[in-house]
Design a protein around this nucleic acid. Structure first.
Lengths: 226, 226
DNA sequence: AATGTGCCGTTGCAATTGCAACAAAACGGG
DNA sequence: CCCGTTTTGTTGCAATTGCAACGGCACATT
């Protein structure tokens, strides 16, 4: 465990906390640590979920099984990543997803939601901070999901691209600005065909709306972007 | 204030709490109540937001201003509804949205996020419960948003409809089942043209995938729905 | 009965998109 | 420098979609 404190210090939940603080918090909360051999099930769809996981080593895959048992991967969780926090915190009777260890053995730290949310008798300072972090994490994910819905809700590819670029511009407050995706990833993120994305980007460049080179984009005509 | 406890008891945050419990909690947390004349600004884009609001009476509109000041409405919040919880909890330096009182005077109860999250010295029982509710609310919204992204992320209208209907079916565990939208609202929700939705529903019925009458839908061929 | 209104389905048409296949450019080793 | 791989751009074509306009139906009002 001790050697994974570095990982914990990089998680949204524990960042900027000292090892001492994390140590005291974990001992106050109680936790549960386990290693899963590769491709082993961590959670099954339908399990009762009261804890969320933090990947310490290896990688976890979040899966959704369709009605006929075909699995598709929703997310890859790398070390430092958290999974299942929404399901655990929502108090669902059963988990709608499965989680599986990836291509290597995977070490997971579990925290029980009720224990996190119920202040211990010592009323330790850090416990309060942890709750605030958890809330902040959920809230930020909320905002990010809402933004994504904004993009996906646009009817045309051009509008999706426009909304995405404007949002990137607003976040970075500079023009030109860099985007964090390559074309393939951007197409996936906006849920459009890659070639259609490419075609539309070219058209927007030709029309003088934007200019770009690789991951650097510049908005030329703000008026026409929304 | 006292006459609005009924409204509070219907909110996700306070439901199943007695008036006594709510009263003691509010006095422990402190709160801030204010009435806004119709169409008056409650928050402006860019304001520092540390509280979220609960609409007690009237209605609030959440707005996003684009780069040229044009406003569009993101959400209507009716009595009992909560707004701004994600922004307040995320600890953003400035609010990305405005909130405005609607067509009638609007009474809002504000709760400060830090006070909600920081346990008071009395360590009152209900305070803990309130935090758990807030977390649950954020987590459930998270799940709902994720599900919506699932729908919107499908490439074709048919796939969007299929995913939506399967989800409704799973939630109600019955076939046929009722959906909570009329055609217009469903088209908005899935972000497709109403007539295109109608056309595709007809095609799916003709193809023997589904049957429907008004708001009642029946899935006939599960295999082909996903 | 006549009228108005809201909801839903249908259709023609133009525009957009996904798909598939290929070409060009960039990149990283050896 | 060469070669294999990855990333990005292009294009033809069929299918899907948005848009606009219209008609039918149920329901409420007068």
């Amino acid at each position: 465990m001790e050697q994974f404190f570095g990982v914990l210090q990089q998680t949204e939940l524990f960042e900027n906390m000292s090892r001492e603080e994390i140590r005291s918090m974990l001992s106050c909360l109680g936790y549960h640590e386990r290693v899963y051999p590769k491709n082993n099930i961590i959670w099954n769809t339908g399990d009762i979920v009261r804890s969320f996981g933090i990947v310490l080593d290896g990688q976890a895959q979040v899966l959704r099984d369709d009605l006929f048992g075909k699995r598709n991967i929703i997310a890859y969780i790398m070390p430092g990543g958290v999974f299942g926090e929404a399901f655990a915190c929502a108090g669902l009777p059963e988990s709608p997803v499965s989680v599986m260890a990836g291509q290597t053995a995977t070490r997971v730290l579990f925290l029980n939601v009720e224990k996190v949310l119920t202040l211990c008798s010592h009323a330790c300072t850090f416990h309060n901070a942890l709750i605030a972090r958890l809330v902040r994490m959920l809230a930020r994910k909320n905002i990010a999901l809402n933004e994504k819905i904004d993009f996906l809700g646009k009817r045309t590819t051009r509008e999706k691209i426009g909304a995405f670029l404007l949002s990137s511009y607003r976040r970075q407050k500079s023009n030109p600005f860099l985007i964090e995706f390559n074309r393939n990833e951007l197409a996936d993120f906006l849920s459009v065909d890659r070639s259609a994305l490419s075609r539309e980007l070219s058209a927007m460049k030709r029309a003088g709306l934007i200019d770009y080179w690789k991951n650097s984009f510049k908005i030329l005509d703000f008026q026409k972007m929304e």
